[in-house]
Design a protein around this nucleic acid. Structure first.
Lengths: 207, 207
DNA sequence: GTCTATATAGGGATAGAC
DNA sequence: GTCTATCCCTATATAGAC
């Protein structure tokens, strides 16, 4: 693996573990056993590294959000979709931990992240509209629109919320599952009785 | 007004405007036209200043969350309550902008903030249980519990979310009203028809 | 209580040799 | 591509005079 790629990989790992602002370029170089000078040969600034990491994130989240060929016809599809979204968020969670600060510091990141947030909300809207059309979800358009926003907000800040309320050693995987259920529970009251039962089953399986 | 108090006041203002990590002790002293040395005569560290500001915040939010004598019997009461919560959050919004970072840096703040979050969720639960008992809200206990968590999460991160999605010059007051409506819409599907109509009326008035 | 001056430390980033 | 050495800057915090 090339040094250039290892820097990205190591930086991402450290950012996620320690928080972006607590990780210096020297830490990254130290962790990789290379010199700070070497690091700056490959990237001209710390923000440049962050930006490259963000581009990887953007690519992945877009892949998840823009898959057109999926037919969201069941709770299981919904679960899979949410799991994919939460997985990507978890993989790049440092972005979400200091979101406002990063957006204010890096102008491009702000614009791109806004697009992604809008896309998240839009995708949630599309899925739920499909479910409503198929008679799997009983809610008017106004309610669905609110739910879509709420889902985007929840997905975006769930990890922060769970860090804020749970003990620090709370299992990472459990945090994710909790978040997904949290989102599904938002939608649950509008599901058919059949799907509600399925939800209860999934609950006992994962929580 | 004493210098000691002016420091708190000025620091809070700058933290909210610029973000805590972008405001140095020198900036605070500059803004007040005093010397950095003078500032450190009154407070022994920056975190000490933050801690004192947090104590003021804690006092205010507890006053709002712990008022026992209010009878939540109408949408208007709910609106007033939410407005009070969002107002305090807005007044101390720097705490919410960098929540995770601050919690990790200041151990006391972490513990105290956790208590407040739990209290927020608990209060929302109590209010909605009352509404349900009075027949104003149609939802089972499981749904109400989910809603309570969701309300706490939304109140906590709404300002960050609106910063993330809206243009920077979006009116502060409007952001707040939007947040309150966002929370109310979570509850709306479970209200009586009468209250839903009232909600629509409030919507046109404030949005 | 307030000031000026300064210590101390650390982070981002560059120059130049190899 | 990689290293060593170092510059520059800024932030927190302190010492000591007034």
């Amino acid at each position: 693996m090339k040094t250039k790629d290892r820097i990205i990989q190591t930086a991402l790992m450290l950012f996620n573990e320690e928080g972006e602002s607590n990780v210096t370029t020297n830490h990254i170089a130290d962790e990789m056993d290379i010199s700070p000078g070497n690091l700056y040969y490959h990237y001209r600034s710390k923000d440049d590294i962050i930006w490259k990491i963000f581009l990887n994130y953007e690519k992945k989240i877009r892949t998840v959000l823009e898959q057109k060929d999926v037919n969201y016809a069941s709770m299981q599809d919904m679960w899979n979709y949410l799991h994919a979204v939460f997985d990507v968020i978890s993989e790049y969670r440092f972005l979400y931990r200091n979101l406002i600060q990063l957006m204010n510091r890096i102008e491009f990141l702000k614009r791109h992240f806004r697009h992604i947030l809008a896309l998240k909300s839009q995708t949630a809207l599309t899925i739920m509209s499909h479910l409503a059309d198929d008679g799997l979800l009983n809610a008017d358009q106004q309610t669905i629109a609110s739910l879509a926003d709420q889902i985007a907000l929840t997905a975006t800040f769930w990890l922060n919320y769970s860090i804020a309320i749970y003990d620090d050693d709370f299992d990472e995987e459990k945090k994710l599952s909790h978040g997904i259920f949290h989102v599904i529970r938002l939608v649950a009251p509008f599901l058919t009785e059949n799907d509600k039962a399925l939800l209860d089953e999934l609950s006992t399986q994962f929580l």
